[in-house]
């Protein structure tokens, strides 16, 4: 048995917590997806390093 009694307040807030959790999960998917697309399509390619005049 749980030490703290479940109250209506907790039940009502569960929906809000799930909503926030899903929003954060969606944000992770979006950032990951955008990163994959940008990397695989060359959107984030680094500029080629230019050689300095003394050849280093």
């Amino acid at each position: 048995m749980s030490l703290s009694k479940q109250h209506e307040l907790h039940r009502r807030r569960r929906g809000r917590n799930i909503g926030v959790g899903l929003s954060l999960a969606a944000l992770i998917v979006i950032v990951l997806g955008l990163t994959v697309v940008k990397v695989t399509r060359g959107g984030l390619e680094l500029q080629p390093a230019t050689e300095s005049s003394d050849g280093i």
């Binding site: 209506e8 307040l9 809000r16 909503g19 926030v20």
Partner: peptide
């Protein structure tokens, strides 16, 4: 103890969406 009158107007996720 808490004020039982306040939670009934506690915002749901749908309120923020609205």
């Amino acid at each position: 103890s808490f004020d039982s009158r306040t939670y009934e107007t506690d915002a749901q996720f749908g309120d923020y969406y609205a």
